[in-house]
Amino acid sequence: MRKWLIAIIISMIVCSSTTEVFGAEKKVDNEYDERMSLYKKMETITNIDWYVFAAVDQYERNIRHSRRDIPKADGLIEIYIRPEVWAGLLNPNPHDNNTVSIALFNGMGLDGNGDGRADQKNDEDILYTFANYLQSYGSNLDNIKIGLWNYYKRDKTVGLILGHMKIYKTYGRLNLDEHAFPMPLKFNFSYNNTWGDARGWGGRRIHEGTDIFANYGVPVRSTCYGIVEMKGWNRYGGWRVGIRDLNNNYHYFAHLNGFAKGLNIGQAVEPSQLIGAVGSSGYGPPGTAGKFPPHLHYGIYKDNGKTEWSFDPYPHLKAWERAERLKNRKK
């Protein structure tokens, strides 16, 4: 009787946990669907492609989550338009939602859902306002680039948004959250948490990544959906590849033995896609190799709209490895 009771309790716990997980996944999927519906609606109204809105929104979503000087969003759309820009610089009411007075003070805010108000917290009003701003420059890519630069005044921001646009256009969906361990799990490899350790070659500095030791030629794969932002030689990292993902993160793969055939800067890649092979290149002029055991140096850098910094990739690597092993066991 006691065994049956224990079994029932365990079953209830497992079912409860599973329901919570499925519920969370369903909520995320619903949010993607709702956001896509908003982007598509605005595409119909403005003739600006949906992935333009998706890219700007995703860039700003990550900026909001990584900085404290920008308030959290109230809705699904996280494009932030400063109150003084929305209402007008000389408007005594920075939270004005009256379309007449906003226009009088040359504010940017517009009514996007037809309720007669330009609400800074309404998703449709925000998207329509930003779409109208871009339309003032034109709807083709070159004009959109100009509009983005005049809005953000930062070349790197424009580059990140254009990269996001290409990813969304290539894969045609928003749910691109999958990740992969940078090497196929069937190969032998080992790694420890080495982020922050001292490094001496080329001057005193810290180790901005995790070293994954493996044999020469072991395949190296993209860990994410992203854009190849960098490919070539670096005197520290040797032959290296840099991939920018949809979270404004730069994934750095260094000391490679070579690159995957056909891999080019500006190319969209996906998790598990081959990008190169393990080597021991670096610490000198182009072609230098063999100054240390073969391994992959893997690092991640975060851009917050103002600056970029390194953070510890080890927990992410462990999580991706566990998830992939679990997935393989289920096959």
Rank of each mutant, 00 (worst) to 15 (best):
R173W: 10
N98H: 11
M108V: 09
N132H: 14
F105I: 06
N150P: 06
L141V: 12
L141W: 11
R117D: 04
S101Q: 02
L90S: 10
G114K: 02
G116H: 09
N93A: 12
A103R: 13
Y171S: 08
G114Q: 09
G163F: 13
Y133A: 04
N106M: 02
G172L: 12
I146L: 11
G112I: 09
N106Q: 04
Y152V: 04
I126S: 02
G159V: 08
L104V: 09
Y151M: 03
G88H: 07
Y137N: 07
I161N: 03
F130D: 04
H95D: 15
E124D: 07
S101K: 07
A103D: 14
K145G: 10
Y137H: 13
K145E: 15
D155S: 10
D119N: 15
T170I: 01
L127I: 02
N97P: 08
D142A: 13
F105R: 00
L160E: 00
Y137C: 05
N143T: 14
Q135V: 03
L148P: 01
N175A: 11
A118G: 00
E178T: 06
K145M: 14
L110K: 14
R154N: 09
V100H: 12
G112A: 08
G107A: 08
Y128R: 01
G159N: 14
N113G: 04
K156L: 06
N140E: 15
D123E: 03
I102H: 07
L162A: 06
N122P: 07
L134C: 13
L104M: 12
G107P: 03
A131S: 03
G112Q: 02
D115A: 06
V100G: 02
N106G: 09
D125M: 11
I102V: 09
L134H: 13
N132Y: 15
Y137W: 11
S139C: 11
Y152S: 05
K169P: 01
P92Q: 01
S136W: 15
L89M: 11
N132F: 14
P92A: 06
M165Y: 14
L174P: 01
Y168C: 08
K145H: 14
D115M: 01
N91L: 11
K153D: 01
G172F: 07
P92E: 07
N175T: 00
R173A: 00
I102D: 10
I161H: 02
Y168I: 04
Y168A: 05
F105V: 08
H179R: 14
L90N: 12
Y152H: 04
V158T: 05
T99I: 15
K153M: 00
D125Q: 11
N140C: 10
G138S: 10
D177G: 06
I144A: 03
V158W: 01
I144D: 00
N97I: 13
G138W: 06
L176Q: 07
I167Y: 07
Y152F: 01
